[in-house]
Amino acid sequence: MTMEDRLLQTLRSVFGDDLHELKDADGLGTITGWDSAGHLSLIMALEAEFQVEFETDDFAELVNIGAIRKRLAEE
């Protein structure tokens, strides 16, 4: 599975199956369920899915798809 597929699958698991495409600008506040609590759930899910450990700064920065794509590409 490509990184994009895994990302989409993780977001659908956390926020619901009606997510179909991910735009860079989508994120906290624009995707249903991605509120402050949903954000933490997503961060925890991404860490387990991609075997990464984000730094505390990442928690505040990874608030949209574009930022997450960029951060995961660095791994």
Binding site: S13, V14, A45, E49
Partner: peptide, 11 residues
């Protein structure tokens, strides 16, 4: 199970 799987299954 991974967190994402738990969340999806719980829903």
């Amino acid at each position: 199970m991974r967190p994402a799987e738990y969340q999806s299954l719980a829903r």
